[in-house]
Protein backbone atom coordinates (compact mmCIF):
# COMPACT_ATOMS: atom_id res chain seq x y z
CA UNK A 1 0.00 0.00 0.00
CA UNK A 2 2.89 2.33 0.73
CA UNK A 3 4.24 1.95 -2.73
CA UNK A 4 0.82 2.52 -4.15
CA UNK A 5 0.59 5.69 -2.09
CA UNK A 6 3.88 6.88 -3.47
CA UNK A 7 2.65 6.41 -6.97
CA UNK A 8 -0.79 7.83 -6.51
CA UNK A 9 -0.12 10.84 -4.34
CA UNK A 10 1.98 12.75 -6.86
CA UNK A 11 -0.68 12.04 -9.42
CA UNK A 12 -3.18 13.89 -7.32
CA UNK A 13 -5.14 10.74 -6.73
CA UNK A 14 -4.85 11.07 -2.96
CA UNK A 15 -8.61 10.90 -2.66
CA UNK A 16 -8.54 7.32 -3.90
CA UNK A 17 -6.52 6.12 -0.97
CA UNK A 18 -7.84 8.54 1.62
CA UNK A 19 -10.59 6.01 2.40
CA UNK A 20 -8.05 4.34 4.68
CA UNK A 21 -8.98 6.68 7.45
CA UNK A 22 -12.33 6.35 9.09
CA UNK A 23 -13.87 7.56 12.26
CA UNK A 24 -15.08 5.23 15.00
CA UNK A 25 -18.56 6.41 15.80
CA UNK A 26 -19.95 7.04 12.39
CA UNK A 27 -22.56 4.90 10.72
CA UNK A 28 -20.88 1.87 9.22
CA UNK A 29 -21.55 1.10 5.62
CA UNK A 30 -22.32 -2.54 4.90
CA UNK A 31 -21.79 -3.69 1.33
CA UNK A 32 -24.03 -6.46 0.07
CA UNK A 33 -24.82 -7.58 -3.43
CA UNK A 34 -28.61 -7.68 -3.46
CA UNK A 35 -28.94 -10.15 -6.31
CA UNK A 36 -28.35 -13.10 -4.09
CA UNK A 37 -31.67 -14.34 -2.95
CA UNK A 38 -32.27 -15.59 -0.32
CA UNK A 39 -29.16 -14.12 1.27
CA UNK A 40 -29.62 -10.55 0.13
CA UNK A 41 -32.08 -9.20 -2.40
CA UNK A 42 -34.33 -6.25 -2.94
CA UNK A 43 -37.98 -6.75 -2.09
CA UNK A 44 -40.66 -4.96 -4.09
CA UNK A 45 -40.40 -2.04 -1.67
CA UNK A 46 -36.74 -1.61 -2.72
CA UNK A 47 -35.52 -2.66 0.71
CA UNK A 48 -32.60 -5.04 0.86
CA UNK A 49 -33.72 -8.11 2.76
CA UNK A 50 -32.54 -11.65 3.25
CA UNK A 51 -30.69 -13.99 5.55
CA UNK A 52 -27.45 -11.99 5.44
CA UNK A 53 -29.34 -8.80 6.16
CA UNK A 54 -31.12 -10.23 9.18
CA UNK A 55 -27.84 -11.61 10.50
CA UNK A 56 -25.92 -8.36 10.18
CA UNK A 57 -28.76 -6.36 11.69
CA UNK A 58 -28.90 -8.69 14.69
CA UNK A 59 -25.12 -8.67 15.04
CA UNK A 60 -25.00 -4.88 14.84
CA UNK A 61 -27.68 -4.55 17.46
CA UNK A 62 -25.79 -6.79 19.88
CA UNK A 63 -22.50 -5.04 19.15
CA UNK A 64 -23.97 -1.58 19.42
CA UNK A 65 -23.04 -0.56 15.87
CA UNK A 66 -24.92 1.81 13.59
CA UNK A 67 -25.15 0.30 10.13
CA UNK A 68 -26.42 1.21 6.73
CA UNK A 69 -26.73 -1.47 4.07
CA UNK A 70 -25.71 -0.46 0.57
CA UNK A 71 -26.39 -2.58 -2.48
CA UNK A 72 -22.94 -3.16 -3.97
CA UNK A 73 -22.43 -5.18 -7.15
CA UNK A 74 -20.56 -8.40 -6.45
CA UNK A 75 -17.84 -7.73 -9.03
CA UNK A 76 -16.80 -4.53 -7.30
CA UNK A 77 -17.51 -5.52 -3.72
CA UNK A 78 -13.91 -6.11 -2.65
CA UNK A 79 -12.77 -2.99 -4.44
CA UNK A 80 -15.42 -1.09 -2.49
CA UNK A 81 -14.01 -2.53 0.72
CA UNK A 82 -10.45 -1.70 -0.33
CA UNK A 83 -11.14 1.90 -1.16
CA UNK A 84 -13.34 2.52 1.85
CA UNK A 85 -16.69 2.85 0.10
CA UNK A 86 -17.94 0.19 2.47
CA UNK A 87 -16.64 -0.73 5.92
CA UNK A 88 -17.68 -4.35 5.91
CA UNK A 89 -19.17 -6.86 3.52
CA UNK A 90 -21.80 -9.46 4.18
CA UNK A 91 -22.74 -10.98 0.89
CA UNK A 92 -22.44 -14.72 1.08
CA UNK A 93 -18.65 -14.47 0.99
CA UNK A 94 -16.97 -17.85 1.35
CA UNK A 95 -14.07 -17.91 3.74
CA UNK A 96 -10.98 -19.24 1.94
CA UNK A 97 -7.24 -19.06 2.26
CA UNK A 98 -6.71 -16.82 -0.74
CA UNK A 99 -9.16 -14.24 0.51
CA UNK A 100 -7.76 -14.47 4.02
CA UNK A 101 -4.46 -13.18 2.64
CA UNK A 102 -6.12 -9.94 1.66
CA UNK A 103 -9.05 -9.55 4.07
CA UNK A 104 -10.13 -10.45 7.58
CA UNK A 105 -13.14 -12.65 8.24
CA UNK A 106 -15.40 -13.08 11.24
CA UNK A 107 -16.40 -16.48 12.52
CA UNK A 108 -18.70 -18.36 10.12
CA UNK A 109 -22.38 -17.48 10.03
CA UNK A 110 -23.50 -19.98 7.40
CA UNK A 111 -22.44 -23.41 6.30
CA UNK A 112 -22.21 -23.41 2.55
CA UNK A 113 -21.66 -26.15 0.07
CA UNK A 114 -21.41 -25.84 -3.61
CA UNK A 115 -24.31 -27.31 -5.50
CA UNK A 116 -24.72 -28.14 -9.17
CA UNK A 117 -27.84 -27.04 -10.97
CA UNK A 118 -28.54 -28.86 -14.22
CA UNK A 119 -31.24 -30.14 -16.53
CA UNK A 120 -33.53 -32.93 -15.30
CA UNK A 121 -32.32 -35.22 -18.10
CA UNK A 122 -28.67 -34.79 -17.18
CA UNK A 123 -26.82 -37.88 -15.99
CA UNK A 124 -24.10 -35.93 -14.20
CA UNK A 125 -23.46 -37.16 -10.66
CA UNK A 126 -20.76 -34.70 -9.76
CA UNK A 127 -18.16 -32.23 -10.91
CA UNK A 128 -16.10 -34.78 -12.86
CA UNK A 129 -19.06 -35.57 -15.10
CA UNK A 130 -19.15 -31.97 -16.26
CA UNK A 131 -15.89 -32.31 -18.21
CA UNK A 132 -16.37 -31.01 -21.74
CA UNK A 133 -19.72 -29.47 -20.82
CA UNK A 134 -20.47 -25.77 -20.66
CA UNK A 135 -20.48 -24.67 -17.04
CA UNK A 136 -21.99 -21.44 -15.80
CA UNK A 137 -20.57 -19.77 -12.72
CA UNK A 138 -20.62 -16.36 -11.08
CA UNK A 139 -17.37 -14.51 -11.76
CA UNK A 140 -14.90 -14.90 -8.92
CA UNK A 141 -17.26 -17.04 -6.85
CA UNK A 142 -16.37 -20.31 -5.17
CA UNK A 143 -18.09 -22.09 -8.04
CA UNK A 144 -15.77 -20.25 -10.45
CA UNK A 145 -12.86 -21.30 -8.28
CA UNK A 146 -13.87 -24.98 -8.28
CA UNK A 147 -14.54 -25.07 -12.02
CA UNK A 148 -11.32 -23.19 -12.79
CA UNK A 149 -9.28 -25.55 -10.67
CA UNK A 150 -10.83 -28.64 -12.22
CA UNK A 151 -10.98 -27.56 -15.87
CA UNK A 152 -8.43 -24.74 -16.18
CA UNK A 153 -9.04 -21.07 -15.50
CA UNK A 154 -8.82 -20.02 -19.14
CA UNK A 155 -10.99 -22.89 -20.36
CA UNK A 156 -13.65 -21.42 -22.66
CA UNK A 157 -16.17 -24.01 -21.44
CA UNK A 158 -16.47 -22.01 -18.24
CA UNK A 159 -18.95 -19.22 -18.75
CA UNK A 160 -18.91 -16.49 -16.16
CA UNK A 161 -21.87 -14.31 -15.30
CA UNK A 162 -22.56 -11.37 -13.02
CA UNK A 163 -25.00 -13.18 -10.78
CA UNK A 164 -26.53 -16.55 -10.06
CA UNK A 165 -29.97 -15.66 -11.45
CA UNK A 166 -28.38 -14.73 -14.77
CA UNK A 167 -26.40 -17.97 -14.80
CA UNK A 168 -29.57 -19.95 -13.97
CA UNK A 169 -31.46 -18.15 -16.76
CA UNK A 170 -28.72 -19.18 -19.14
CA UNK A 171 -29.08 -22.75 -17.85
CA UNK A 172 -32.85 -22.64 -18.29
CA UNK A 173 -32.31 -21.43 -21.87
CA UNK A 174 -29.81 -24.24 -22.47
CA UNK A 175 -26.95 -21.81 -22.92
CA UNK A 176 -24.98 -23.90 -20.42
CA UNK A 177 -25.26 -27.52 -19.25
CA UNK A 178 -24.77 -26.84 -15.58
CA UNK A 179 -24.31 -24.09 -13.05
CA UNK A 180 -22.14 -24.42 -9.98
CA UNK A 181 -23.02 -22.12 -7.15
CA UNK A 182 -23.77 -21.74 -3.49
CA UNK A 183 -26.29 -24.23 -2.16
CA UNK A 184 -28.73 -21.70 -0.72
CA UNK A 185 -29.08 -19.75 -3.94
CA UNK A 186 -28.92 -22.65 -6.38
CA UNK A 187 -31.60 -24.61 -4.53
CA UNK A 188 -33.81 -21.54 -4.34
CA UNK A 189 -33.42 -20.70 -8.03
CA UNK A 190 -33.66 -24.21 -9.43
CA UNK A 191 -37.07 -24.80 -7.88
CA UNK A 192 -38.33 -21.88 -10.00
CA UNK A 193 -37.72 -23.87 -13.20
CA UNK A 194 -39.47 -27.19 -13.58
CA UNK A 195 -36.93 -28.56 -16.08
CA UNK A 196 -34.02 -28.13 -13.68
CA UNK A 197 -32.71 -30.13 -10.75
CA UNK A 198 -29.84 -29.95 -8.30
CA UNK A 199 -26.95 -32.39 -8.04
CA UNK A 200 -24.85 -32.57 -4.92
CA UNK A 201 -21.24 -33.60 -5.32
CA UNK A 202 -20.11 -35.24 -2.07
CA UNK A 203 -16.54 -34.22 -2.83
CA UNK A 204 -17.35 -30.53 -2.62
CA UNK A 205 -15.88 -29.37 0.66
CA UNK A 206 -17.90 -27.80 3.41
CA UNK A 207 -17.37 -24.08 3.39
CA UNK A 208 -18.48 -21.20 5.49
CA UNK A 209 -19.67 -17.72 4.87
CA UNK A 210 -18.07 -14.99 6.93
CA UNK A 211 -18.42 -11.25 7.34
CA UNK A 212 -15.49 -9.46 5.69
CA UNK A 213 -13.59 -6.44 6.90
CA UNK A 214 -10.47 -4.75 5.66
CA UNK A 215 -7.28 -6.46 6.66
CA UNK A 216 -6.10 -5.16 10.01
CA UNK A 217 -9.38 -3.59 11.07
CA UNK A 218 -9.25 -5.54 14.33
CA UNK A 219 -11.48 -3.19 16.32
CA UNK A 220 -14.41 -3.74 13.99
CA UNK A 221 -13.69 -7.45 13.59
CA UNK A 222 -13.77 -7.99 17.35
CA UNK A 223 -17.08 -6.18 17.71
CA UNK A 224 -18.63 -8.20 14.90
CA UNK A 225 -17.37 -11.48 16.35
CA UNK A 226 -18.73 -10.56 19.76
CA UNK A 227 -22.10 -9.72 18.25
CA UNK A 228 -22.14 -12.94 16.26
CA UNK A 229 -21.31 -15.00 19.34
CA UNK A 230 -24.10 -13.25 21.21
CA UNK A 231 -26.82 -14.03 18.68
CA UNK A 232 -25.67 -17.63 18.42
CA UNK A 233 -25.88 -17.90 22.20
CA UNK A 234 -29.30 -16.37 22.69
CA UNK A 235 -31.11 -18.23 19.90
CA UNK A 236 -31.56 -15.28 17.57
CA UNK A 237 -29.30 -16.96 15.06
CA UNK A 238 -31.30 -20.21 15.05
CA UNK A 239 -34.51 -18.25 14.56
CA UNK A 240 -33.16 -16.35 11.58
CA UNK A 241 -31.84 -19.55 10.02
CA UNK A 242 -35.22 -21.22 10.49
CA UNK A 243 -36.97 -18.27 8.84
CA UNK A 244 -34.94 -18.39 5.66
CA UNK A 245 -34.06 -22.06 5.19
CA UNK A 246 -36.88 -23.84 6.98
CA UNK A 247 -34.32 -26.04 8.70
CA UNK A 248 -32.37 -26.44 11.89
CA UNK A 249 -29.24 -24.34 12.00
CA UNK A 250 -26.17 -26.56 11.78
CA UNK A 251 -23.45 -26.26 14.37
CA UNK A 252 -20.79 -23.87 13.15
CA UNK A 253 -17.10 -23.87 14.05
CA UNK A 254 -15.98 -20.99 16.23
CA UNK A 255 -13.38 -19.84 13.74
Amino acid sequence: MNLLNKILLPLGLAALVAGNVHAQNKELVVGSSATYRPFAYENPAKEIVGYDVDIIKAVAQKAGLQIKIVNTPWTGIFAALNNGDVDLVISGVTINEKRKQSYDFTAPYFEARQLIGTHKDSTAKGLKDLAGKKIGVVTGSTGDDIASREFGKTNPDIKRFESTPVAISELANSGVDAVIGDNGVIAFRVQEHKQLKTVSDPNFPKEYFGIVVKQGNKALLDKLNAGLAAIKADGTYAKIYQTWFQAEAPALPAQ
Binding site: D144, S148, K153, R160, E162
Partner: peptide, 22 residues
Protein backbone atom coordinates in the same frame (compact mmCIF):
# COMPACT_ATOMS: atom_id res chain seq x y z
CA UNK B 1 -19.71 -9.56 -21.38
CA UNK B 2 -22.85 -9.49 -19.23
CA UNK B 3 -24.29 -12.44 -21.12
CA UNK B 4 -21.05 -14.38 -20.90
CA UNK B 5 -19.36 -13.65 -24.21
CA UNK B 6 -15.64 -14.09 -23.63
CA UNK B 7 -14.36 -10.77 -24.95
CA UNK B 8 -11.99 -8.28 -23.35
CA UNK B 9 -14.20 -6.93 -20.59
CA UNK B 10 -15.26 -10.48 -19.70
CA UNK B 11 -11.63 -11.49 -19.38
CA UNK B 12 -10.89 -8.56 -17.11
CA UNK B 13 -13.91 -9.39 -14.98
CA UNK B 14 -12.75 -13.00 -14.72
CA UNK B 15 -9.29 -11.95 -13.57
CA UNK B 16 -10.67 -9.38 -11.15
CA UNK B 17 -13.03 -12.01 -9.77
CA UNK B 18 -10.28 -14.56 -9.28
CA UNK B 19 -7.74 -12.26 -7.65
CA UNK B 20 -9.84 -9.37 -6.35
CA UNK B 21 -7.35 -7.12 -8.09
CA UNK B 22 -8.63 -4.43 -10.38
Amino acid sequence: SAIGLAELAYTARTVAGAYSRY
